[in-house]
């Protein structure tokens, strides 16, 4: 198979970094059971998506379109974080811990 490696221009470095950032977020999503940590990992994943949008817009000369999409993503991500944290606070009050495994009542 013939894989031609991309030249090392700054935007491809950013694109590669965005992929690694998404990988870090995915690992964080899988490696923890703490509800607040899960929201931190989701924030990192969304940050990677927004960075990818802006970098792609910058590479194609469509920065303004990517900006308007990125603003939408940031707003919705903030609302998701607020609702997730409020849910976490309520879970802590009801179940006494932030463990996500406590939430599944089918186990016992």
């Amino acid at each position: 198979m013939n894989i031609n490696l991309p030249a090392l221009d700054p935007l491809s470095v950013v694109a590669a970094g965005v992929c690694i950032l998404a990988g870090v977020g995915l690992y964080g999503l899988m490696a923890t059971r703490n509800l607040i940590k899960i929201i931190v990992a989701m924030q990192i994943l969304t940050k990677a998506a927004v960075l990818a949008l802006v970098a792609a817009g910058s590479a194609n000369g469509m920065v303004n379109l990517s900006q308007s999409l990125a603003i939408t993503v940031i707003v919705i991500d903030t609302v998701v974080a607020a609702i997730g944290l409020a849910l976490g606070v309520q879970v802590r009050k009801r179940f006494g811990s932030l463990d996500a495994a406590n939430l599944s009542s089918l186990r016992r």
């Binding site: 991309p6 491809s12 694109a15 998404a22 990988g23 490696a31 990818a52 000369g61 469509m62």
Partner: peptide, 29 residues
């Protein structure tokens, strides 16, 4: 988890990074 994340990162890098090189600047509003 780390292995899965690594595989997904490699897959994303393989698919995303080359597409950054074929950009053609277009005028926009």
């Amino acid at each position: 988890g780390a292995l899965l994340a690594l595989c997904l990162t490699a897959l994303m890098g393989w698919m995303v990074v080359p597409s950054f090189l074929s950009g053609v600047p277009v005028p926009e509003a």
